[in-house]
Design a protein around this nucleic acid. Sequence first.
DNA 1: TGCTATAGTTAGCAAGGCTAATTAAAACGC
DNA 2: GCGTTTTAATTAGCCTTGCTAACTATAGCA
Lengths: 143, 143
Amino acid sequence: MGKMNKAEELADRLHSTAINLLRQVRVQDAATGIAPARLSALSVLVFGGHISLNGLARAEQVRPPTMSRIVDALEAEALVRRRANEQDRRAVVIEATEKGAAILWLGRKRRVKFLAKHLSRLSDAERKQIANAVQAIQKAMMK
Amino acid sequence: MGKMNKAEELADRLHSTAINLLRQVRVQDAATGIAPARLSALSVLVFGGHISLNGLARAEQVRPPTMSRIVDALEAEALVRRRANEQDRRAVVIEATEKGAAILWLGRKRRVKFLAKHLSRLSDAERKQIANAVQAIQKAMMK
DNA sequence: TGCTATAGTTAGCAAGGCTAATTAAAACGC
DNA sequence: GCGTTTTAATTAGCCTTGCTAACTATAGCA
C-alpha cells in the first residue's frame, strides 16, 4: 500500500470515513425531493438569511452561472424568491420563502435524526471523542 | 435554530465538518485532471484489482449504465482496459493499466499529503482524538 | 429444447459543474 | 459631467454523472 507515515495513514482513513458518512446521509436528503445542490443552497438561505446571488455562489463554492440556474429551479418551485436590491440595481437579493424554510427544516431534521440514531449506538465516551475530533478537524482545516 | 438535543447537535456539526473537509480535498483531486467519478472508480481498480463491471458499479454505488460510461471514458484515456471473462462470456473484466495506477498513486499522494499537512498543525493528543473518532464513526455507521 | 435470469450496452433525460459572451448598473478618473 | 472600467447577473453552450427503459447476448435450468 506504499509507505505512509502515521499522519498520512490518519489522513487517508479520515478521508474514507468522511466519504462514507456523506454517502449514507445523502440517501436521507433524497427524501426531501429536492436535488442536492438546490437543498444545499436553500440551507444557506434559511440559516443565513437573504444574500446576493454572487454571495450565495461564493458560499457554495460554485460560479455565478451555476448558482443562477440553481436559484431558477428553486424559484420555479416557490422555495426562494428574488428581490430587487434598492441600493444597487445590478444586484438581486435572494431569500427563502416560508415554504422553502419549512421543507428545509423537515429535511434537516430527518438527516440529523438519522445521524443521531447511529451515534446513539456509541458510548458517551465515544461521542465525546467525536465531539473533540470535530473541533480538532475544524481547527486543522480552517484558513 | 430549533431545539436539538446533544446527540443531534453533534450529528449536525459532524455533518458540516465532513462536507467542509471533502470540499477542500476535492480541489486537490482536480489537479489529477481526472473527473471525480472516474478517479473514484479507478481507485477501486487500483486498490482492489480486477473486477466485473457490475461489481465495480456496486462498489461505487451507481447503476451499471453509469459505470459503463465511466469505464468508457477511462478506457479512452488508457487508464483501464476491458478484458474478456473466459468463464462467462457475458461478463467483462476491468483492470487498471500501468498508466492508470501511476496517475492514481500520484493523486492519492497529493491528497493525503494535503490532509496530513493540515493535521500536522495539531498536537499529538488532538490527532489521537481524531484517530479514535474515526474508529467510532465507522462503528456507528456500519451495518 | 425452450424459458428465465443475468451481464453489459445503448439511448435519452435531468442535474449541476464550467467558460465565454452579453447586458445593465455602479464607480472611478480627469 | 462624461467616458472608461469594473461589477452583478444572466444566457448560451459544453461536459460529467446520475437515472430508467429497452435491447443483445450468454448462462442456467426445468
